[in-house]
Amino acid sequence: MTKLLSTIIVDDEPLARKGLAVRLADHKDVDIIAQCHNGREALEAVRAYEPDLMFLDIQMPGLNGFEVVQAIIEKGLKLPIVIFVTAFDQYALQAFEVHAQDYLLKPADETRLAESMQKVRQSLNSSENAVHKSKLIQLVSDVTGNDCDKILAELTNNQPVSLSSYSDILAIKDAGEVSRVPVKDILWIDAAGDYMCVHTHSATHILRKTMKQLEEILDPKQFVRSHRSTIVNKNYVDKFCSQLNGEYYLVMSSGKELKVSRSYKDKVKQAVGI
């Protein structure tokens, strides 16, 4: 007798949940045990049912798909096989091709769904399942900026998973696209009205966050606030200078001069080792 795959569907769109459930009805080994309309419900379903398989929407209010997986890992819950579902083709390709992580584009057609289910059945043996979960953790690590090797080691040793609050990647949405900017490449960030300008060697990106939010996600070992409207990467500071009028400024490796306010002067001097 074929083993039934306990399955949950997570999507904030009722029609999307219903459409996927209808298509999955053709797969007799799939047992849909729950349908969730947000990430919080998904976490409770994973905790309660420990499903074998989860179809997980990426774009949801509250917890998105990546954050749901991160929360499952963080809480030490049993991680099911995950098939991400997305309406954004370009975003999905960028996010998953490198990791060979499976995903479906909305609306899922029967052929593509059958291919995904075949991958699921093949991954049910322990070695294939371990590879799948390793790739899934790698993906979430890249998206959230967490240390993949450390996560795997903690899972292997049945230890609590510690997730870093500082990201290696800054995801910047612009005109429907998502740019993943490596944090190490950021020279400085300054405020421009309601937006932040993120400057790298090759480009300037526009980000809608506050200085406070940026300070919470950028490692203070690498970044320092030099002004109420500026954060700088210490690795790209060449000089700390003072002027005759008592003002201070930094000279970046790019040649750019950035003002240092008096209230941040001592902190900046200490941060850059002066």
Rank of each mutant, 00 (worst) to 15 (best):
E110C: 13
M117A: 02
R121V: 04
I81H: 14
Q138M: 06
S134L: 04
F84D: 07
I83S: 09
E115N: 07
T111R: 10
Y103W: 01
Q138N: 08
D89H: 02
D102C: 04
V82N: 06
Q94S: 11
V82Y: 05
S134V: 14
V85K: 15
A92E: 03
S127A: 12
I83L: 09
Q118I: 13
A95S: 06
S116I: 11
L139I: 04
S127I: 14
L104W: 00
A95C: 01
A87C: 06
M117S: 02
A95F: 00
T111L: 11
V131E: 13
E110I: 13
Q122N: 04
V82T: 04
A95W: 00
L105P: 04
L105I: 00
L136P: 08
K133A: 02
L124D: 10
V120D: 08
L105H: 07
Q101R: 06
E128A: 14
F88S: 11
L104N: 00
L104D: 03
V120Q: 04
V98H: 02
V98P: 01
T86Y: 01
A130K: 15
S134R: 14
F96P: 05
Q101M: 13
E115Q: 07
V82K: 02
E115M: 13
I81G: 05
M117L: 15
V82W: 03
Q90L: 12
A114F: 02
L113W: 02
E110M: 14
P107D: 13
V131A: 15
Y103A: 05
A87D: 02
L113R: 11
A87R: 00
M117Y: 09
E128D: 10
V120K: 04
S116V: 11
